[in-house]
Amino acid sequence: MSVLDKLLDGVQVEWKMLGEALVRTTGTNITAGRMKELHKDNAPLKIFAGGKTVAFFNYSDIPEKDINKEPSIIVKSRGVIEFEYYDMPFSHKNEMWSYHSKNNNISIKFIFYYLKINEPYFQNIGNRMQMPQISVPHTDKFQIPIPPLEIQQKIVAILDTFTELTAKLTANLTAELTALKQQYTYYREQLLSFEDGEVECKTLGEVGELVRGNGLPKADFTEAGVPAIHYGQIYTHYDTYTTKTISFVSPKTAEKLKKVNKGDVIITNTSENLDDVGKAVVYLGEETAVTGGHATIFKPGTTIIGKFLAYYTQTEMFAKKKAKYAKGAKVIDVSANDLAKIVFPIPSLKEQARIVSILDKFDTLTTSIRKDLTKENELRKQQYEYYRDLLLTFPKKVN
């Protein structure tokens, strides 16, 4: 803190409108279809189209006048409203705009960092529109601080270092999580693999009852009431099992829906990708729950443990089996009738319980480590944002 106090002590700050301090440039007139057509993976010129959408062109693909070769701040003005710094030759769709500096006393990277901490301000303006968007006057008239260039450069150096360290930490944590997931997947595949003839195999329909859900749009959710599981929540909120739901419906709505009892397995039937189809979660809550369409309730018989089934649906072996029954292109579906035909290994209940016990321990361990690593990453991010905000907070001149 003493370093920060010393750095900012007595700093004289000039305030100007962004459009007055920097040079605004337009992009190029090009459609999304044309961008896709001209894209080449190893081409040198990056073209921005808003959000995370980019393409790479050769220099000859667009007019020379539309190519920006100055380090710039790109304004993503529609949909996801944000600012991006880029210091290589680029262009962008003409619905966007960018800024660069021709003033030797202004660091464009410094202004970028200042705009980044003010993104919520611009996003709030954009969210007032039917399609989130901001216009040129919103940024042109925005007031920015301009301390002495030396101070700008010091702040940029500090924030660049923070950014680099944060990126390295995130990369390391991601690598740890990936390694952990790979280790868990390896042992799960080993535990659930059986030699031909080693255990009895039966179809899912032979070892339990399958009940296809009905209804349950998200609009029916209430803050309290009867526990409810929407199919989309299974592959976004739940792992192998859950003791409570994140959603509820009214008792009147629940009367129309299929019931889920403790120990039942809810299996997804539909998704935009095959990986999420057939994902299963065991409901272990004490209160009867409900589920809706695009999900099938599996009520285990006396020869299979629900958790054993749920863990098996996460394997590569099951992925190959369900792929044979998948129908559709944009939306993929594996029906309850087809799920009933899929053959599963059914070892003894004692062996199933042993495997489930081991995988439960792995699941608990990996979940705990994942939470710890995620929390550490979040704390480092908060630390970075705290110091960034301190460095970029300047007193405004009072008239």
Rank of each mutant, 00 (worst) to 15 (best):
M88Q: 15
T288D: 14
T303R: 12
V343S: 02
A219L: 12
Y114N: 03
I155L: 08
Y325V: 08
Q352G: 04
P227H: 02
E119N: 00
V211F: 13
E316W: 10
L359G: 04
Y283F: 09
T26E: 11
T302G: 14
I47Y: 11
E189H: 02
Y113C: 00
Q143M: 15
K321R: 10
A326T: 01
I106G: 02
T268A: 02
A32H: 08
K341Q: 09
E255W: 08
D66T: 07
S91C: 08
L38D: 07
N105P: 07
N42E: 08
Q153I: 12
G213W: 05
Q152G: 11
K93W: 08
G50I: 02
I111T: 10
I47V: 12
I47A: 08
K116W: 01
L359D: 03
Y86Q: 04
G215M: 13
L8W: 08
H92N: 07
H294I: 14
S271T: 04
K330F: 15
N399F: 06
P395M: 06
M131R: 13
V290C: 11
F362R: 00
F194K: 04
P345G: 11
K93R: 06
G126R: 05
D61C: 10
V211E: 13
V54W: 05
R388T: 01
I134E: 01
N118K: 04
K244R: 12
K341L: 07
L274C: 10
I155V: 13
D372Y: 09
E119S: 03
A219T: 11
P145R: 06
L18R: 02
Y186E: 06
A353D: 10
D5C: 11
K299T: 15
L115V: 01
L4I: 15
L165G: 11
G263E: 11
A319I: 07
G33E: 14
G197C: 05
